[in-house]
Design a protein around this nucleic acid. Structure first.
Lengths: 200, 200
DNA sequence: CGTTGATTTGACCAGTTGGTCAAACCAAGA
DNA sequence: TCTTGGTTTGACCAACTGGTCAAATCAACG
């Protein structure tokens, strides 16, 4: 019989996760310290460890929450929908995700850069299964002549790469663009790109 | 009157830089330790610091060497060449770079993810200047009707994103593809993509 | 108000970190 | 062979790391 979390527990747990996301997404697991996270959360270090048993536990909690939301937009790709529209919409959803949750994107990027030590298994099983499934759908569309004949796996990679780039390389993108805000132009560009690429 | 480096100096300096590249590209600056680098280089920690004054110095040396090679392939984009071919060739060069120097790509990615603390200035000045210049060339091609009318900045970003993805997210790409090697398919995909995108 | 359980913290610990230094070692030319 | 200057290392240090713990504080309910 587990007790329901108190108001304070709820507030502090979310504050810690938010602070952890800030720090981990910037410096990766090894490069982040509990002191940094504690300070960002406005708590003392021992107080952090009252809510989470270890640094690892905070990181794991963040990654788990991330993976759920990360796989969702691809899941929504509908085999019964209009092919080009389905793919363009997926790219749009991913771009919106980059815009609204850049820290999550960077947390994921950090994890992958370091060799995905904590989520490699999920990638190899859950992610691969889902991607293979969606790739088969896209392949079907291509064979039916509804879209151009391109490699569906690399198509999916391209959506990941193009959209996450705006979150992960945000600093560089803004440094090059100067004052111009990135996301309006990016959305137009992506729309055009996938229209042209996919139309048979 | 600086003395020329001895044979031993040359060997150890390159060994250290190579080891540093290994470690920094995986864990970022803060997440990497001198002990790790020393061990990877086959040297003792004090011996490392005989050749480089600090951890920072190793990292800086790597970043400087990187930036030279990083900006080169875009520099080679020739205003007098055939537009579509010039851009496709640039994408190819970048993809080859990802394939042959994935650690360099990841070192760069780590630096950007962390907010580019050490190279932000270079990005804002040198990189921006060069990108703006090349963007103007591409814009010119578009206005002359030689290629389709797309935003040149985002076109360049797309080449960066698509090619570096294969180096930076290597683990994920391979986890999803299984046994299939990534780069053959990637090359074909990129060729098709930019052909279709750019043809007027 | 008093009590009880949740919350917070200062003091502390052992291991790791980047970095120093004097002493030892070694290669090669005289 | 001896000398000299480049090279290597063990011992060491102060600061920081993740984590512990007992004691203090707080919130809320009867």
């Amino acid at each position: 019989m587990t007790k329901p979390p108190t108001r304070i527990q709820l507030r502090n747990r979310t504050a810690i996760l938010d602070a952890g996301l800030d720090v981990f997404s910037k410096y990766g697991f090894r490069g982040s310290t509990l002191d940094q996270i504690a300070q960002a959360a406005g708590l003392s270090k021992p107080n952090l460890l009252y809510y989470f048993p270890s640094k690892e536990a905070i990181h794991t909690a963040l990654l788990e929450r991330l993976l759920e939301n990360w796989l969702a937009p691809l899941q929504a790709l509908d085999p019964k929908g209009d092919p080009v529209r389905e793919i363009v919409d997926y790219a749009r959803r991913k771009l919106t995700l980059s815009q609204n949750y850049p820290r999550e994107s960077r947390l994921f990027a950090n994890e992958i850069l370091q060799g995905a030590p904590r989520i490699y298994d999920t990638l190899r099983t859950d992610l691969k299964t889902m991607v293979d499934g969606k790739a088969a759908i896209i392949k079907g569309w291509a064979q039916a002549g509804q879209i151009a004949d391109i490699d569906p796996h690399h198509l999916i990679f391209s959506i990941w790469a193009l959209t996450q780039h705006y979150a992960d390389f945000d600093v560089q993108v803004r440094a090059v663009l100067g004052d111009k805000p990135p996301y309006d132009g990016a959305a137009v560009f992506l729309d055009t790109l996938y229209e042209k690429l996919l139309r048979p």
